[in-house]
């Protein structure tokens, strides 16, 4: 129980830190980018909404800094993120909720698949020490881990869409199809997601493979694996319940750690593919100097990473009795 409370406490602190960064950055940065944005709102929105924006970006406000800070915190806590410039006069929160399913479907699902698949391949590679997987994979994935996501996305578009014409080159769906729960639409969405998913998978799977392989190699040297061999257990049983169950624990922690990296890559992949998700919207907001939308999306990305970490924590507690007892 204390374990859960401690993790939740960390969740709140991190979230607070992200909100505070949002509040501080526009005040710390030189220049008047925010002022320029505000002038575009003038006369278009109600004075009350205008005031909230002024507090968020520290312009024209006669409030003291601490007072402005608490008003800002209050606004965020009530979910008032402001009005979007890009999608005027739509509220930011509404826009964000529209983009979220696309990213969850593409990035979320692909990341989980990459993690599971990579963990499995890493386990098998280490288990068959000196075999093909073990010999060939590490150098390959060390090098692919240095590939820029967006560049691989460009290459994929060039080859599979432009050259071969197999899949559409951008967007989340064909604008001519009607949106809804029809097979045509779902098939269309899937066709559009193949290339971005493939790009994210290829670039992120290497990390999981390498760490799982190295973890497993360390675990294979443990006495309990030797004990399992002494017991004459079947090899697959030793691999799963003795080597795998123990080696995946640090990998779960690593999953939480590198999620920020995956999210960063995914933003660029969405950008390259014009995929209508959170990352694409985030960069659109930057492009359009739509700071209210940008701040909300930054918070959302932080929350996404935090939720994933909580899930990884939960899985660790489920798989490791020692974590459960130490709490």
């Amino acid at each position: 129980m204390r374990f859960v409370l401690r993790r939740l406490g960390f969740f709140v602190v991190t979230l607070w830190a992200a909100v505070t960064l949002n509040f501080l950055i526009p005040r710390l940065m030189p220049g008047n980018a925010a002022l320029a944005m505000m002038s575009r709102y003038k006369g278009r929105i109600q004075p009350q909404a205008m005031h909230a924006l002024e507090i968020a970006f520290g312009i024209h406000t006669h409030q003291s800094l601490p007072a402005a800070y608490f008003t800002y915190l209050g606004n965020i806590a009530r979910g008032h993120f402001g009005i979007s410039l890009t999608f005027f006069p739509d509220a930011v929160s509404h826009q964000v909720l529209q983009a979220l399913p696309w990213t969850l479907g593409l990035v979320g699902l692909t990341t989980v698949i990459a993690f599971l698949l990579g963990t499995l391949i890493g386990l098998v590679a280490a288990w068959r020490r000196g075999g093909f997987l073990d010999g060939a994979l590490p150098p390959i994935f060390v090098i692919t881990s240095a590939f820029p996501y967006f560049w691989l996305a460009l290459l994929a578009i060039w080859f599979f869409s432009i050259k071969l014409g197999w899949v559409p080159e951008s967007g989340g769906y064909d604008v001519t199809t009607t949106i809804g729960w029809s097979w045509t639409f779902i098939g269309d969405v899937l066709r559009h997601s193949i290339l971005p998913a493939f790009t994210i998978l290829i670039t992120s799977i290497g990390g999981w493979i390498l760490t799982m392989r190295n973890n497993t190699i360390s675990v294979l040297a443990e006495d309990y694996v030797r004990m399992a061999r002494a017991k004459g257990l079947k090899p697959w049983r030793i691999m799963w319940t003795y080597a795998g169950r123990n080696a995946i624990l640090p990998n779960l922690a690593g999953f939480a750690m590198s999620l920020g990296f995956v999210v960063s890559g995914a933003i660029l992949v969405e950008f390259v593919f014009n995929y209508p998700g959170v990352g694409w919207m985030f960069l659109q907001s930057v492009e359009n100097q739509d700071y209210a939308l940008m701040q909300a999306l930054f918070l959302l990305l932080t929350v996404a990473v935090l939720v994933a970490i909580l899930v990884a924590d939960g899985a660790t507690a489920l798989l490791d009795p020692r974590t459960r007892d130490s709490s």
Partner: peptide, 16 residues
Amino acid sequence: LVIPIFPLIIVIAAYE
């Protein structure tokens, strides 16, 4: 470690 750094850099760069 948890706050996604790349988006944070984008936020900073967006103002400047």
